[in-house]
């Protein structure tokens, strides 16, 4: 982390939690393959018992990663309401065993994937993706262009947040805060102006033309 100024969504780190555990040092490709295997295994294995084992394994992985619980809990808690509602519904329709399996399967997978995300820098994962997507070079999507687009994306989010807050303030100043149109239209117009100016700037710097 390079300091408090860096908003979580404005940096290349994302939900990464720095550390030196076994999982932090494991190559991202191996971790991704592991997650894929876990996903298939969880989908294939039936019954509440295997789902409970999956959750235990996910918790064990979490402990090994030494990532604090509060870093990963938000992702899991977000779906908990949906899960409990659907769990109740499944219990009522198809019995407790199915309900437990459905809920525990999702919790295990979400937890595993969140641990992977927390132990791998976002830019590292994007590099893996760019490598996997290399065959797309033939249709004009080079890894360089992808990297440029990622950088541009991270740079543009704070600009757009600023623009939309200004549009909201302007709408409020005119007493139009309940009129979505008064916020959306100026934001969108300024966004396209910004994108075209950025395109001009890229071209002027000789970027994105290869």
């Amino acid at each position: 982390m390079s300091g408090p100024l860096r908003q979580p969504w404005a940096g290349p780190l994302g939900l990464y939690h720095p550390g030196d555990s076994l999982l932090h040092r494991c190559p991202p490709g191996v971790k991704l393959a592991g997650l894929a295997v876990a996903g298939i295994a969880i989908a294939v294995a039936r019954g509440p018992l295997s789902a409970a084992v999956a959750v235990l394994l996910a918790v064990a992985t979490h402990v090994v990663s030494r990532v604090p619980w509060h870093r990963t809990s938000r992702g899991v808690l977000g779906t908990l309401v949906t899960l409990l509602l659907v769990g109740a519904y499944q219990w009522w329709v198809r019995g407790w065993a199915v309900a437990a399996e459905v809920v525990l399967d999702v919790v295990a997978l979400v937890l595993l994937a969140t641990v992977l995300t927390a132990t791998t820098r976002a830019d590292t994962l994007l590099e893996v993706l760019a490598r996997v997507a290399r065959p797309l070079r033939r249709v004009g999507l080079s890894p360089e262009t992808f990297a440029l687009a990622c950088g541009l994306f991270l740079r543009t989010v704070p600009v757009l947040v600023q623009t939309s807050l200004e549009a909201r303030d302007a709408a409020r100043a005119r007493g139009l805060e309940n009129n979505p149109r008064a916020v959306l239209v100026p934001s969108a117009v300024r966004m396209v102006a910004h994108a075209r100016a950025t395109g001009d700037a890229l071209a002027a710097r000789g970027l994105g033309e290869d």
């Binding site: 950088g151 991270l154 740079r155 600009v159 910004h194 950025t198 001009d200 700037a201 002027a204 000789g206």
Partner: peptide
């Protein structure tokens, strides 16, 4: 041409393209 002719815009926001 663009390699020879550099261009600076009014608003730096659009032309700073990296984080």
């Amino acid at each position: 041409v663009r390699r020879r002719v550099g261009f600076v815009f009014t608003s730096p926001d659009a032309q700073i393209v990296m984080p």
